[in-house]
Amino acid sequence: MIKITRAVYQSGVEIKLHFSDGSFGVMDFHEVLAQKTSLTNALGDTVFFQRFFLELGALCWPNGLEFSGRSLYKKLEAKGKLVKPAA
């Protein structure tokens, strides 16, 4: 099971995510903000966006929004933005 082990704010709505298999990538949350739901609207506030935390390997915000490590891993991989460790 892929988990997020570390998350570091970059800028705007980007967070660098480190995963349990040693890979990492910078996730851009613009697509999430575009969904305009009651949970994602809060991320438009830069101060609130930076209040993310990790819980059981998932990326979470205080309003209850959370993303599993696996889902973010797959999104980064699909976009070619996942850097995997050398074998």
Rank of each mutant, 00 (worst) to 15 (best):
M1C: 06
M1V: 10
I4A: 09
I4T: 08
T5C: 14
R6I: 03
V8L: 14
Y9T: 05
Y9R: 01
Q10T: 10
Q10E: 09
S11H: 14
G12W: 03
G12M: 04
G12E: 02
V13M: 03
V13R: 12
V13D: 05
I15E: 02
K16I: 01
L17P: 02
H18A: 04
H18Q: 07
F19Y: 08
F19T: 03
F19W: 07
F19H: 07
D21R: 03
D21N: 12
D21L: 11
D21W: 15
G22H: 09
G22S: 04
S23I: 01
S23H: 06
S23R: 12
G25Q: 02
G25T: 00
G25I: 03
V26Y: 02
M27I: 04
M27C: 13
D28E: 06
F29P: 02
H30I: 07
E31A: 06
V32F: 06
A34C: 06
Q35N: 13
Q35H: 12
K36V: 15
S38E: 14
T40D: 12
T40R: 13
N41D: 14
N41C: 15
N41M: 13
A42C: 11
G44E: 13
G44Y: 12
G44P: 10
G44Q: 11
D45Q: 12
V47G: 09
F48V: 05
F49D: 07
F49A: 08
Q50K: 14
Q50D: 04
F53C: 09
F53K: 11
E55H: 13
E55M: 12
L56D: 15
L56V: 04
A58E: 08
A58G: 06
A58N: 15
L59D: 08
L59I: 05
W61L: 12
W61R: 09
N63I: 05
N63C: 06
G64I: 00
G64R: 10
L65M: 10
F67M: 00
F67T: 02
F67L: 01
S68A: 04
S68N: 03
G69P: 04
S71W: 05
L72Q: 08
L72M: 03
L72G: 05
Y73D: 00
Y73F: 13
K74G: 02
K74Y: 07
K74M: 14
K74P: 00
K74L: 14
K75M: 12
L76C: 03
L76M: 01
L76Q: 03
E77A: 02
E77P: 00
A78N: 09
A78Q: 05
A78R: 11
K79R: 13
K79F: 01
K81M: 01
L82P: 00
L82E: 02
V83K: 03
P85A: 06
A86W: 12
A87D: 10
